[in-house]
Simulated scan of single mutants.
Amino acid sequence: MTAMRYLRLALVVLATLMQPSMLGAHEASLGVLEFREVRPGAFIGRWTMEPSIGAGRIDLRVPPHCFLRLPEMNCGQKGLVGSITITNLGANMSAVLIKVIPIAGEPRSYTISTANPVVSVLGTGAPTLEAWIELAKTYVNYGIDHILLGADHLLFVLGLIWIVGGGWRLVKTITAFTIGHSASLAAAAFGLIGVPERPLNACIALSIAFVGVEIVKQQRGTMGITARYPWAVAFTFGLVHGIGFASALAGLGLERSLLPAALLFFNIGVEIGQLAFVLLVLALIWAHRRLDAVVPRWGEALPAYAIGSVSMFWFFGRLVRVFAAI
Rank of each mutant, 00 (worst) to 15 (best):
G76E: 06
I112P: 05
G105M: 09
P63S: 05
H65N: 06
G56H: 11
N92H: 15
F67P: 03
G105A: 09
P63R: 02
S113N: 11
P102V: 11
R69G: 10
I84F: 02
G56W: 08
I101G: 03
A115R: 15
M73G: 05
H65T: 12
P107H: 02
E72Y: 13
N74W: 03
C75M: 06
S113R: 09
I53Q: 14
C66L: 03
C66T: 04
H65Q: 14
H65F: 11
A95Q: 12
S83T: 10
R108A: 07
M93V: 14
E72R: 15
M73W: 08
R57M: 11
P107C: 04
D59S: 13
I84Q: 00
I98A: 00
P63H: 00
T111K: 04
N88Q: 12
P64E: 12
S94D: 14
P71Y: 05
A104S: 13
L80I: 07
S83E: 13
G79W: 10
A95F: 08
L89A: 14
G82Q: 00
P64K: 06
A104P: 01
L70P: 04
Q77T: 12
S113C: 09
R108I: 11
S109C: 09
I84S: 03
G82R: 01
R69L: 11
V96R: 00
G76S: 02
G105Q: 08
I112K: 03
C75S: 04
I86E: 02
R61P: 06
I58H: 12
G90V: 13
K99C: 08
P64F: 06
A55H: 13
M93A: 10
I103D: 03
L97A: 15
E72Q: 13
G56D: 14
T87C: 13
V100S: 00
P102F: 07
N92A: 15
A115Q: 15
T111M: 13
C75G: 01
Y110R: 02
M93D: 09
G79I: 07
G90R: 04
L70T: 12
K78F: 07
G54I: 14
S83M: 07
I86K: 00
E72A: 14
V100P: 03
V62G: 05
N92M: 15
S83L: 06
I103K: 02
R57A: 15
Q77A: 08
E106C: 02
I101A: 00
V100E: 01
H65G: 03
G82S: 00
E106T: 10
V62C: 04
L60Y: 13
A91K: 14
Q77N: 06
A55S: 11
V62K: 04
S94G: 08
G79F: 02
P64M: 05
I53M: 12
N74E: 07
N92L: 15
R69S: 11
K99T: 15
M93N: 12
G76H: 01
I101V: 14
K78D: 07
S52Q: 13
I58D: 09
M93L: 13
V96T: 11
